[in-house]
Simulated assay, not measured.
Amino acid sequence: MSLLELDRVGKSFGPNTAVEEFSLGVAKGEFISFLGPSGCGKTTTLQMIAGFLDPSQGAIRLEGKDLVAVPPAKRGLGIVFQSYALFPHMTAAENVAFGLEMRKVARNEREERVRSALTLVGLAGYEDRHPRRMSGGQQQRVALARALVIRPSVLLLDEPLSNLDARLREDMQIELRQIQRNLGTTTILVTHDQIEAMSLSDRIVVMSKGRIEQIGTPQEVYEQPASAFVAQFLGKTNEFAATVARTADQAKLVAGSWSAPAPVGVSGTVTVTVRPERISFGDAGLAGRITSRIFQGNHWLFQCDTECGPAIVIRQNDGQMQPEQGAAVHLVWQDADMSLRAAKAAA
């Protein structure tokens, strides 16, 4: 049984539908990310879980109990906002203790839990510091400690790392995942950052225009995208059309000089998706020519013109000779490294 269940949840604002038929079960201890561009409905969905918005339809249940009629403060959820929303006149310890005070936790227990929460997020010794005297990363840790100290059944994170610089954001991703694993807190993260979602999540819910495009593990949504949107939103990708050619004893996918055995049940024209890092240069395959090559430290990025249109190839900087700009090449990959979908789905 899921700890948290959303059953065909929807939200409309007048004639505009923000979220449509959203269904998801979240297991206890699971880390889920809602991933998508601005306006896709991910924050609206999080706000319905938190109780800040009422759904227009559907049900939200926590441990089998209906949440829709329960006020936000009584849902037992921890929330970290993008802006952190710390009280500027309170110290770090006072900010963290606020939720416990509202729940009338005894002073001795409150002080111990605040101390433990600040230690957990690496802020032992910062108890008396005010937010204005703390860095963005430290403020984010205080906000996280404040959400965790109440021991929430579900932790909701609304793009909490978006205000941090790239290096600190990466460090905080690692720390956040480690804290979540150690505590086993069920967590839902809203983000538009694909790397963040793939780094942190057990499963990712990819959203577009208020609808779920795909739900799966990071590996599933990256390597087996269910739609053109998912393939293009999660990192760089190559797509081209191939046709199934059948003979008396076999069926092949064919696109220019490239061919591969056609999976059972595939027919007509399909869209082939291959990630750039799965492609190598070989003696035979999809013919093309290098139009540019860019050195990016630990890898090279090649742009190619092929018989089937432009393609990107990413090769590790392993010290081996790399093709020069203008060189004729053949692009090759393993059958297991490509995904297929009906051509009409690419429209």
Results as ranks from 00 to 15, higher is better:
residue 346 A to M: 08
residue 171 D to Q: 15
residue 32 I to N: 02
residue 58 G to A: 06
residue 285 G to K: 12
residue 22 F to H: 04
residue 33 S to G: 06
residue 263 P to W: 07
residue 155 L to V: 04
residue 6 L to C: 01
residue 345 A to Q: 14
residue 192 H to W: 12
residue 158 D to S: 02
residue 195 I to P: 00
residue 224 Q to W: 06
residue 93 A to Q: 14
residue 302 F to D: 00
residue 29 G to R: 09
residue 110 R to Y: 10
residue 313 V to M: 09
residue 305 D to G: 02
residue 105 V to F: 03
residue 292 S to C: 08
residue 178 Q to G: 00
residue 339 S to M: 06
residue 15 P to Q: 13
residue 308 C to E: 15
residue 74 K to D: 15
residue 228 A to R: 15
residue 141 R to E: 07
residue 155 L to P: 06
residue 8 R to A: 14
residue 314 I to S: 15
residue 285 G to Q: 11
residue 236 K to F: 11
residue 285 G to W: 12
residue 147 A to D: 08
residue 64 G to T: 08
residue 6 L to N: 02
residue 187 T to G: 04
residue 117 A to W: 11
residue 198 M to P: 01
residue 80 V to S: 06
residue 33 S to W: 05
residue 254 V to R: 12
residue 299 H to D: 13
residue 68 V to G: 05
residue 101 E to M: 10
residue 12 S to N: 15
residue 246 R to Q: 15
residue 31 F to P: 12
residue 167 R to Y: 07
residue 154 V to P: 02
residue 333 W to P: 03
residue 215 I to P: 02
residue 235 G to N: 14
residue 193 D to F: 11
residue 33 S to L: 04
residue 249 D to R: 13
residue 336 A to K: 06
residue 165 D to K: 06
residue 155 L to I: 03
residue 34 F to A: 09
residue 179 I to L: 10
residue 235 G to F: 13
residue 117 A to C: 08
residue 231 A to Y: 09
residue 211 R to Q: 12
residue 257 S to L: 08
residue 229 F to R: 08
residue 54 D to C: 10
residue 119 T to A: 15
residue 12 S to H: 14
residue 304 C to N: 01
residue 285 G to C: 13
residue 13 F to S: 10
residue 268 G to W: 11
residue 161 L to V: 05
residue 178 Q to Y: 04
residue 318 D to G: 12
residue 7 D to E: 14
residue 217 T to N: 12
residue 144 L to E: 03
residue 285 G to E: 11
residue 315 R to C: 11
